[in-house]
Nucleic acid binder design. Structure first.
Lengths: 166, 166
DNA sequence: AATGAAATGGGATAGCT
DNA sequence: AGCTATCCCATTTCATT
């Protein structure tokens, strides 16, 4: 099979071969693997593996992260908010993005197609905290035409990364 | 201020003090920090920091992860799908969860309040790939009453973890 | 009980074949 | 890519407050 040349953001195009993909797969399954364990699993020795890893990290294909368990730090409630703006001018959207950038409760902000403009993912302590966020923070923002909240019960599936079926 | 006792999933309750929180904050900002750098930033030496880290990882408060840049591996399209089921029996939902668990394109699945049952986050190559997923995979599933797609233009904010304003 | 200093052990990486 | 050697980093032990 051919290796597709792909372009990480802000970097040069990079070609991933089958070994690179196996490396990524293994790391997605277990990010705590040592280079020796990882090398063994992908059928390599430590040195070339180390070089490949450096390439992948350097090109921005993968990056290390530390994930916090929300409940463990007192964030018991997740929600999605569909936001519609009065888009009278181009800078309305940019102002909104700047505003939510300053709100730590807003964990993700996507601009989307459809009958709303932004889909936000929000992480707060509890329902009271969510009410405070909506009433005291969002309702202060200008140009918000509509906001629909969807509370998360639970999350039966979450995979930090995915790969096409190579 | 008091340290709240919190309960990571499947583990014993754990108390996080101010130093723990600073550690977590620093790691969220930069997961590649060495223990020495991290120790310096939180005002500790390497030894006690190492112990605190072991505690945090052991209790499941934080965990290491490797994040893949979707575009870099050929996944150029993100979407959200709001799914409504014919919930005639309790096992309908469970069957659905099992089905989407086998679909690598479904990166997240949340059960939610509101006028749909599941919110899915989906990561695919392009629009053609998305059509294939919806038409060939989802439309084969029984009990799906409705599905509304929302395509992501871009993601102006994404923070892998958040902390309450301690 | 938790910190800091020092030593030890292991893993990651660079040079070479 | 593999082997080897080096170096750096993480961790453990111990003394200390």
């Amino acid at each position: 099979m051919m290796s597709d040349a792909v372009t990480p953001p802000g970097t040069l195009p990079m070609t991933l071969d089958a070994v690179d993909r196996r490396i990524i797969r293994c790391l997605l399954e277990d990010a705590t693997l040592s280079n020796n364990e990882l090398a063994e699993r992908v059928g390599l020795t430590a040195a070339p593996l180390s070089r490949r890893l450096a390439r992948l990290y350097g090109a921005g294909v993968i990056r290390q992260a530390v994930v916090v368990d929300p409940a463990a730090v007192g964030l018991g409630l997740q929600a999605f908010a569909e936001v519609t703006l009065n888009r009278t001018a181009p800078e309305v959207g940019e102002r909104f993005v700047r505003a939510i950038a300053a709100m730590p409760e807003v964990v993700e902000c996507h601009t989307v197609t459809g009958d709303f403009d932004f889909l936000l993912k929000i992480s707060v302590k509890d329902i009271a905290d969510y009410k405070r966020l909506i009433w005291n923070e969002f309702d202060r923002l200008p140009d918000i035409k509509g906001l629909r909240s969807t509370i998360v019960f639970d999350t039966p599936k979450r995979s930090l990364g995915t790969l096409p079926d190579w």
